[in-house]
Design a protein around this nucleic acid. Sequence first.
DNA 1: ATAACTTAGTTAAGCGTTTTCCTATTTTTA
DNA 2: TAAAAATAGGAAAACGCTTAACTAAGTTAT
Lengths: 338, 338
Amino acid sequence: MSNIYDVARLANVSTATVSKVLSNTPYVSVQTKERVLEAVRQLDYSPSLAARGLTNRRTYILGLVIPNDPDYLFTDPQLLEVIRGVENTANDNDYNILLSMAKKTDQGSAYTRVLRTGYIDGAITVETFEGETAGKLLDDQGLPRVSIGYRNGLNPLNSVHSDDYRGAYEAVKHLIELGHQQIGVISGPANFVGAMEERLRGAKTALLEAGLEFNPGFLTYGDFTAESGYQASRVLLEGTARPTAIFSMNDRMATGVMRRARELGLKLPEDLSLVGFDDISLAALLDPPLTTIRQPSVEQGRVAVTKLFELIKEGKKEFETVVLPVELIVRGSTTRLN
Amino acid sequence: MSNIYDVARLANVSTATVSKVLSNTPYVSVQTKERVLEAVRQLDYSPSLAARGLTNRRTYILGLVIPNDPDYLFTDPQLLEVIRGVENTANDNDYNILLSMAKKTDQGSAYTRVLRTGYIDGAITVETFEGETAGKLLDDQGLPRVSIGYRNGLNPLNSVHSDDYRGAYEAVKHLIELGHQQIGVISGPANFVGAMEERLRGAKTALLEAGLEFNPGFLTYGDFTAESGYQASRVLLEGTARPTAIFSMNDRMATGVMRRARELGLKLPEDLSLVGFDDISLAALLDPPLTTIRQPSVEQGRVAVTKLFELIKEGKKEFETVVLPVELIVRGSTTRLN
DNA sequence: ATAACTTAGTTAAGCGTTTTCCTATTTTTA
DNA sequence: TAAAAATAGGAAAACGCTTAACTAAGTTAT
């Protein structure tokens, strides 16, 4: 592999000039510039990022930190979308993505080292459960960081997330408008930062506005997996007074509800209306197709990186949290209460 | 952030000694070593990977190259598992993962640059369609590389993949043992390297061994999405002579088949037996639960990295392709032909 | 007692860039 | 037409680490 000296020699200039040409610094004549570029072409030269990082203090690498604890979070298909949005946007701007799937137990491991070692110019952290330490580690170093999700609970700075409140509100309002008054809610894990609280708040607000009251007995918790939705729905569907509709805080848990309902001989949507959250690709293909709240996952990644660039390149310290709009997608799993 | 000089000064030694301590080179006295380590601790020092990479020619970063063309491949939940296997194994060995989602159209973009610039010590490429260039780019530089999937068609070197042949063979054999003779096959895209050919070969072999002949009219193609399975199954299920069983080369397409069958009033498994491939987490939760071939996705990532380390650390040039066993999971979507 | 090792630690070069000063030439301004 | 300003390019230091080569002291073998 050729280095900057090879190029300089071939173009008959100094390495300083080569560097200037490559970084578009002014005061290089057109002829010289062309000669250098020709040499670069001939040698198929590309500058060593390691060397560049050493002088520059810029590595053109962003960290993407995703908690790997617990395992089941990782089966979320939306996550892949987020990753895709992050990677593509970074790449469009000539940045690369270093992936860190942090385990809480890690101390001094490769992942920690990378976050501490000037190897990345900034980071995106996917916020999940309370008690993740990666974010603090980054902040302590003053590294630019953008959260996907809710940072430190509901701190309205430097994060990007969907409008969870609104989504839940719309979901429940939709059910109420269909005549439902007994509405069960399956939440995600209670210690999942921010999002679940917001969705619960949205759901409650919708009830309140309709003059209905929230029945704590109709609130259960799952862990986002389909299996947990199945379990949670037992509580709701096998009690004496069962709800006529269920709002599940993600689609996968909703599939669990469907399965349970089927087993109990309940027909959707006639006997039970069901609204999910996420709009995973499968949602439209279920039987009946699932009414749900669409969340812009790729977009979350995209916006997070764009915002991170503002912090990195413009030296900004903070920005107002970006809340991305969600959309109610009405399909076949909800119907008017008869 | 402190550097090696700070540590050296504090410990009253030369930087060389610090470096030796940190890399466990012999000929450092216990006392000195302890003094250095104490200084490291006090200063919370960790060496700059950039600088280290410059001298070392080791970056402790592996590239993970995943084609991003076409989009729909990316919705594969198995992919996340593979990524997880790769990342975790790399991390366990103090390596990090640089994610590259290559678009074919990219030339000279961030991703290409990273692959050419001595920034990674090796790479894992996820093989999908023919004509991907990232692999060649890496090979041209002599960078160690392991493929997940089938390298250059069926080249039996330096790759890791599941036993696609065996999986398809078992799937179809299972159907035959249940008495089915008219078996439809929904393949993935024909230009998907290796895997589809192998699965088709497996299916044909099973038929042949049972003295049945392969009916080309019962072979259709999808693109791995549920929607394409739905479309493909129309061809199979709406003809005059329809198969009594279908082998779908992935689970998502199988869900499309289920949907179509339901629409046509066909009951699974009585009227139609269905076998998928992958065993995605949803498979067990479908109605009926899907009989399928389980593929070890996390394991593929894990093995790929392990093998890559052999190439990098031991300087090996090649290894025999690792074929990971698959497993037939019999659930409710298949039954004896009556 | 001397030669030959072994151990412990240091010096300084080198990895491949970028960037800050410089110098020299050309162009503009008054 | 002289001074000032703009343009073009180069020399060399700096980034933070590793490592080859070296020195010096202590240990062992003869």
